[in-house]
C-alpha cells in the first residue's frame, strides 16, 4: 500500500521551529509514532501538505512524578508506560490499560498523546484519563496551559486542539493515600482488537470511587451518577441492579460491525460489576495482579 498524495516532511529539533511551521502551514500535521497517522495517509483519510516529525524534540519522552502528579510527555509510548517503574508504583492501572493497546510493535511507536489527539471513540486511553481527572498540557508556542480531560474530547476524532497548537503532555493527579484501579476492555477475542467497550475504575480511600466508560458514546464518559450512588451504597447483590440501571443512563452505545449496542450495554454492566469487585480487592491485597485480562 502506497501513499499517493504528496507531502513534505521536516524533523525540527526545537519547539520554536515546530510552532513556526505550524503557524506557516495550515495543513501541517504533527507526527509522533505515526501508527494512526500513516494508516490514515495511506487510506487518504487525511491529506496534509506537511508532516512535522516531533521525535527529535528533547524532553518530550519523559515520565515524571512530582507533587502527587504524574506527567506523561508527548513522546511517551505505550511500551514506555508498560515498563515505567513510576507508573508501576504510582498508578499501575495505566500499565494495565497500555498492555491492551494493539500489539508490542505498535506500542513501541504509538504514544498516549497521539491516542487522545486521534480521539477515535474506541481509543484505549480515554476512560483512564477520565478517572484520574487528567489535564492536557497544551502550548501554542507562546503560552502553555492545562485543560481538563473532560473538556478535551469534542466528538469522534474531534478535540479542542487548534491547528497552531500542540499537546506537550498529560498530567495525572495521583490520589492521596492508597488507591487502586481497574481497566477492562471488551474485544472480540483475546488477541489485538479495537475496543468495543472499555471500563476504568479508580478507587481511593480518601477520594472515593471514580468510574469511566469508553467506546460506548462519542467521547469517553464519566459515570458521575454511579459514583454518587456508590458514595452512599456498598456494592452488593441488592445494589448491583440499581447500578446497572444507572449504566443505561450514562452510556449510549451504537451498533456497528464490531458489536451490537445491546451487547455493549450488557457487557459494560458486567465489566463495571467485575471492576468494582477487583478494585476493592486490589485496595487491600496485592492480588489480583495488574495487567492480566479479566474478561
Amino acid at each position: 500500500m502506497t501513499i499517493i498524495n504528496d507531502f513534505d516532511y521536516v524533523r525540527p529539533t526545537n519547539l520554536k521551529e515546530v510552532f513556526k511551521l505550524l503557524n506557516q502551514n495550515k495543513s501541517a500535521m504533527l507526527l509522533a509514532g505515526g501508527t494512526d497517522l500513516i494508516g490514515n495517509l495511506k487510506e487518504e483519510v487525511i491529506k496534509p501538505k506537511l508532516l512535522i516529525d516531533i521525535k527529535n524534540i528533547k524532553g518530550l519522552n519523559k515520565i515524571k512524578y512530582a507533587k502527587n502528579e504524574l506527567l506523561i510527555g508527548a513522546l511517551v509510548t505505550f511500551d514506555d508506560l508498560i515498563h515505567s517503574q513510576v507508573i508501576l508504583n504510582k498508578c499501575p492501572v495505566v500499565m494495565e490499560m497500555a498492555k491492551t493497546v494493539a500489539s508490542k510493535a505498535i506500542r513501541n511507536r504509538a504514544t498516549m498523546v497521539g491516542n487522545i489527539c486521534s480521539a477515535v471513540p474506541c481509543m484505549d486511553s480515554g476512560a483512564i484519563l477520565m478517572v484520574y481527572d487528567a489535564r492536557i498540557v497544551i502550548s501554542d508556542g507562546k503560552n502553555e496551559w492545562d485543560e481538563p480531560v473532560k473538556k478535551w474530547f469534542k466528538g469522534p476524532r474531534k478535540t479542542i486542539l487548534k491547528k497552531n497548537q500542540m499537546v506537550m503532555g498529560i498530567k495525572l493527579p495521583i490520589p492521596k493515600g492508597d488507591h487502586s484501579g481497574v481497566y477492562m476492555k471488551l474485544g472480540r477475542y483475546k488477541g489485538e482488537d479495537l475496543a468495543q467497550a472499555t471500563c476504568a475504575v479508580v478507587l481511593s480511600k480518601k477520594e472515593g470511587i471514580k468510574i469511566s466508560f469508553g467506546s460506548v458514546a462519542p467521547t469517553p464518559v464519566r459515570a458521575l451518577s454511579i459514583e454518587k450512588f456508590l458514595k452512599n451504597n456498598e456494592l452488593n447483590e441488592q445494589t448491583v441492579n440499581e447500578i446497572k440501571k444507572l449504566v443505561e443512563k450514562e452510556i449510549s452505545p451504537i451498533d456497528d460491525i464490531r458489536a451490537s449496542k445491546e451487547y455493549r450495554m450488557h457487557m459494560v454492566k458486567i465489566m463495571l460489576e467485575r471492576s468494582l469487585v477487583i478494585a476493592k480487592e486490589r485496595l487491600v491485597n496485592p492480588a489480583p495482579a495488574y495487567g492480566i485480562s479479566h474478561l
Binding site: M1, R11, L31, G34, T35, I38, L51, D53, I106, R109
Partner: peptide, 10 residues
C-alpha cells in the same frame, strides 16, 4: 516496529 506504518524518511 511494523515497517508498513513508518515512513522511510523517519
Amino acid at each position: 516496529v511494523k515497517s508498513c506504518l513508518v515512513l522511510g524518511i523517519e
